[in-house]
Write a protein that binds this DNA or RNA. Sequence first.
DNA 1: TACCGGCGG
DNA 2: TCCTCCCGCCGGTAT
Length: 877
Amino acid sequence: MEQIKNRFVIIDGSSLMYRAFFALPLLTTESGKYTNAIFGFAKMAVKILEELKPEYAAVAFDKSRHTFRSEIYKEYKGTREKTPDELSSQIPMLHEFTKALGIKLIEIDNYEADDIIGTLANKAAREGFETMVITGDRDILQLIQPNLQIVMTKKGITETEIMDETAFKEKYAGLSPKRLIDMKALMGDKSDNIPGVFGIGEKTALKLLTQYQTLDGIYEHINEITAKKLKEKLVTDKDNAYLSYKLATIVCDMPLDFIPTEYSITPDSHALKKICEEYALKSVWTSLNKISGIGEDTAVVMDEDADKYLVANKNMQQKVISQIQTNGYIAYLPVCTGKVPHITCHGLMIASSENNQAVNIFISEADLTSIAGILADKNITKITYDLKSSLHSGLTIAGKTIDTMLAAYMLDPSANEYNLENLSDKYLEREIASYDQKEAIPFGKTAYLLKSVPLKELADILLPLLQEKNLTNLYDNTELPLEKVLANMENIGVYINSEKLQNMSDEIGSTIETLLTDIYKLADIEFNVNSPKQLGEVLFDHLKLPVQKKTKTGYSTNADVLDALRPYHPIIEKILEYRMWSKLKSTYLDGMYNLIDADTQRIHTTFNQTVTATGRLSSSEPNLQNIPVRTDAGKKIRSLFEPAAGYDIFLSADYSQIELRILAHMSDDKNFVEAFKLDQDIHARTASEIFDVPLSDVTADLRRHAKAINFGLVYGKSDYGLAQELNIPRKEAATYIKNYFTKYEGVKKCLDKIVTDAHEDGYTTTLFGRRRYLPGIKSKNFNIRNQNERMAMNTPIQGTAADIIKMAMIATWQEIKKQNLKSRILLQVHDELVIEAVNEEIDILKSILINTMQNIVKLSVPLTIDINTGKNWAEAK
DNA sequence: TACCGGCGG
DNA sequence: TCCTCCCGCCGGTAT
């Protein structure tokens, strides 16, 4: 077995065992033995050997805690039906497996695994061994020191995060690892029966420690603490704090020496094979086969069912490849981990057949080269699911592609999810089992490790359905090619000036602090301003301000309500300000800072192509489609987005009034069309029409009202809503709307027709045929029916705009590529494209954008764009 | 996990 | 599917 010299790994057997037990459903062997704990533990142990390649290793268990801890059981009982016996029956298997792996197992009377780990790790690290502790227990983090890293298991068990001193400090506001003990002394820990100081939580503890470094420090300076209640709490619970400190400290000096030779790893292949067979740990055996020195180097048949998969050996790969060549298509699902732009592909699941039976073959990472030629072969059709993720995985994909996820989205864009299990259920009327097999692939992306990948069958059903619904054109020529563009944009990311970002966050932080003290003073009480519930109580019970509106759960405290309360109390102003700053800080500054990629220093959002019901894209992690712009404070945040080194300028191209222009085209309304043809100010013209004044006499206020109607119109706004927005009587709003539809008769007719059609068809469509089903449109419930009718009116407009910009994006991207430009598209914000550009290319970019965006479709009114440039995104507006 | 509130188009 | 405006994402609190 290949090894890294001097690396010593200690596995927290107790922690992993509990984690595995809770994270996995109860698995049993044929003989009825429970195996979930051993299964998870074994997978983890194998992963450690495979990835960390230690020279020495040990597994520590609690000897005294072999009976299931009742408090943990209580904690989980509500959600999991597992009993203590089911876990304790697996402990001997864990021991057996550890021995077969040739790893020394340590349990010592009267000591917990923590103490064994603390003692051994400390000694090894000090003697210069590169020591790593694998655990799911955060307490262990206190051991971190030079030469000692903690590998924390995250969600589930096989995902891990390596914590060293730097990582720790980053996560815990600069505290050193030892201070974790002080933290716990203050916070306590219910699950470990550590009391802490009553009423102190993580935030307060962190604040105190940042100021006074240690628990001792806090009590030495106890008189400097000005917050009365806090001081009182600390004084009252001083004994508890020090008791907790003791309880939280891991023993590092038990009588146990670190003698390296005792911890050499000496696996026993025979014993391992026997255990894997006996406890049905087929996947563990498969992974063991990948570690040289253990297992056998042959193909492993995972299952004897029709739905089975094979980890392909060389022979099988040849067979599969020739089968693919005969078929002319490959149906595959990549198995990837990591985040853009650091995706690793661990292999491909290939849907194949053997003796006319469905077979899934797993080509592992090491063998990917054998399939690379197929993927790059223009003559072989690729049938896959979520093509964008394939494109991120570094595979070169050529030829005709079929994306079953995208096809399913287009057939019904309102569905909640398009995972393969659902699609198979819906279109093939067949359930895909997923669990045991998805665990069977070593460390893959669990979501798509399914018992079968019926991509070809799905494609055979979905594509004719697209045809039947006239969606083929949009799918082939817009949605599918768009995936490549989006993958490229995501991969490039956008640079954000993190230094400025941090400064801004700090500044706003102190602004917020000041506002808080003001608010507390004005309210004469301290409370959590972030809690609408508490805020409501303060405003309406304590300060007795007039209640404006209620929500389902209590008083409403939203911006409208607060705005109306302004004259009643000076606190309102402060709260509104507080809301604004804390929104900007938490969502945009701190939230985005956490998503800056360490390597690229850029933010790599995800553009979701199968989320919205209307056909728009959405953006997440982070959402870069809702970066502030409307206020000055917001613009400052937008100004943090800058061109990176090698680029000079941001260029933004946005469609002017695209939705209203689409409405003009669809309705063919005489007035509307004329306005756009003459390139008039549409809102001013509307004001002139509905208020019956000459264009030259339209005041700013009249224009504002007209604008509200124009926009509200495409949402199906009611007189009630319009009255609310413009703060005018409902009757007046009703008159506006009536006048509007008298003047714009074509619009009225068009919207009415859309609604009638939707009633008849059960769906509505965009100009390019995109469909949205509206199952509620025939509802007897007035509200639901009305809501569906509003959707029917809005979707063709919003969706058509989405279709158009998608087509324009593809054309722009292709032209940029064709001309070999350095500049590149970074973002799409519904009607805007943001480009990172070099100065020399600005002119050519402008002409490309005008050509593509304005001319990509021919409507009865012109589509125009505004182009702006600037040193950052805020300036390019 | 549900709800509120707030940011964008 | 749930009161009067469509489409989203996200952070915070309370449960």
